[in-house]
């Protein structure tokens, strides 16, 4: 049986993992990405996601050196995002050791990038990250770009369906409103996207307690749940989350004695 995945996320700024509250607010240091990668792989993380959070706004690609070092220390899949704007960028990150490459703003600006990357490297390594925010005027969740700063006017469901057609192998869905709140994932958003597409959906934004993982993976219909600060600051552990899920009948990869 296919298990639900628990994915720690590293937001990397200047070579350090940072923890942030909301998309735009203050950041705190959470440690060295290579050390954290080792710790989380050993602790039962099912994958790692590494996002270079300043790459896109600075118009450059995620730091190759960090990707190489993290990749060499892990024996689980690694997704990398940040500043990916061409097929060459995708190739460069794959060569640095990423297994999947995530694109966000550049996919919105140039959807054919998703198609080209999927054609050239396979759908399995193309992740489209969607930042969603409820737009009262639209009455729908709107796709946001540039780290949540800019609205696109596109509704999330249509965009998710479109990137699936273009060849995205997975969708990393972040709720702008919930991110950093630790109040739980946005279940309505996650469920509506998971129901609309046939590719796996990773839910992100809002994890604060182990119960939140359970609800997003069951009611929210997510295939995987991503979290950052809740793990970095040891408010819960991967093992604790998985034990909770297992106990409540959710299939997880159990590596503990």
């Amino acid at each position: 049986m296919l298990t639900k995945r628990i994915i720690p996320c590293f937001d990397v700024l200047d070579g350090r993992v940072v923890k942030h509250v909301g998309f735009l607010n203050d950041r705190r240091d959470a440690g060295d990405p290579v050390e954290l990668a080792k710790i989380y792989s050993g602790a039962g993380a099912d994958e790692l996601v590494l996002l270079d959070i300043s790459a896109s706004s600075e118009g450059r690609l995620a730091t190759r050196r960090v990707v190489e070092e993290v990749a060499s220390q892990t024996n689980i899949p690694l997704t990398v995002g940040g500043g990916v704007s061409s097929v060459e960028d995708v190739r460069s990150l794959l060569l640095a050791g990423a297994d999947k490459v995530s694109m966000n703003t550049s996919a919105v600006r140039n959807p054919s990038l998703v198609k080209e990357a999927a054609h050239r490297f396979g759908e399995q390594c193309v992740v489209v990250a969607i930042d969603a925010n409820l737009n009262p005027t639209m009455g729908e969740y709107e796709v946001m770009i540039q780290g949540g700063k800019v609205g696109t006017g596109m509704d999330v469901i249509s965009w998710a369906r479109r990137v699936e057609k273009l060849g995205a192998g997975e969708i990393l869905l972040t709720s702008f409103r919930q991110d950093g709140t630790r109040d739980g994932y946005d279940l309505i958003l996650t469920r509506s996207v998971a129901n609309a597409v046939n590719v796996p959906v990773i839910a992100s934004g809002g994890a604060g307690r182990k119960e939140h993982f359970y609800t997003v993976l069951t009611e929210g219909k997510a295939d995987a749940a991503l979290a950052a600060s809740v793990f970095h600051f040891a408010e819960t552990s991967i093992r604790e989350v998985k034990a909770h899920l297992k106990q409540r009948g959710v299939s997880v990869r159990w590596i503990y004695q």
Binding site: L2, T3, G169
Partner: peptide, 13 residues
């Protein structure tokens, strides 16, 4: 078949 999530992605026993 199309009634399943494709790709089959993740950890399977």
């Amino acid at each position: 078949k199309d009634d399943m999530k494709v790709p089959h992605m993740g950890w399977n026993d």
